[in-house]
Amino acid sequence: MKKFKKILQLLMITVLVLGVITGCSNDASSTASTSESTNSEAGTSETTSEEKGSLAEIKERGKIRIGVFSDKHPFGYVDENGENQGFDVYIARRFAKDLLGDESKVEFVLVDAASRVAFLESNKVDIIMANFTVTEERKEKVDFANPYMKVSLGIVSPESAPITSIEQLKGKKAIVAKGTTAETFLTKNYPEIEQLKFEQYTEIFEALKDGRGDAIVNDNTEVIAWAKQNPGFVVGVSSLGGQDTIAPAVKKGNKELLDWINQELELLGQENFIHEAYDATLTEIYGEDYKEELVIEGGKLE
């Protein structure tokens, strides 16, 4: 994360410099070629950047471009036949169906966590649905629609000595991964709980198996999925601490599309569509029990 921030800073500076350079050269060339550019614009009916991503432009194009993950099973991944699948993808397909009349009228752009904002800002996608957690920092750069999923922290512990509330952890050892929300949450709210910290996700699970700590505190999606694959461990607490939501995002200022998504989520809520998406894509990993912990229907958080 730190490295990425540094890269981003460097990027901003270079973009600034580049912007100044190209901005200057643009001025010079645009005065020289005004007649040409007006000609070509009229001829090819090129859309300007303001119109890009508007509902009318998407309909004219006949395809909506949605940015999804390609390697985050089960939210957005590519299956063995090269097809996009997953929870986010399932909902995205429905968006395409309701907006353009056909499920296949969606172009999936495969994005990485680090480049999600950039894809939106540069008009390379219309919507990002790549398990995008709503944060204050991101709200300054993109516009989030209403959420369709929520995540919080969870605690997983051995079945033989289950931890069913955070209070029980006092005086015991909690295993956390460094730099995660879990670490911040515990340090801030429960400084009396001793933390055993590891760099990698795989290490924390190994540590619990070895009995080096009493329980793991981590994102609830991670601990639920892990407990399901590892018999002998239970998720005693499945939602703890502040709740984060996951929502579709559009380019800053694209209110038209944002309103459409919100309205669409509300309509989908009437037929419990997000639950259907959960059944189709997440049950296998998380089981039936956690549906209500994860799903947000109709875009409204109760």
């Binding site: 890269i7 460097l10 270079t14 973009v15 912007g19 901005g23 950039a118 540069s122 390379k124």
Partner: peptide, 19 residues
């Protein structure tokens, strides 16, 4: 400048500026 940053500048920056 790292190659990664060049890729970002060209793909996201330059294409946006030049539309």
């Amino acid at each position: 400048i790292p190659i990664l940053v060049w890729l970002f500048i060209m793909y996201f920056g330059v294409t946006t500026v030049l539309n």
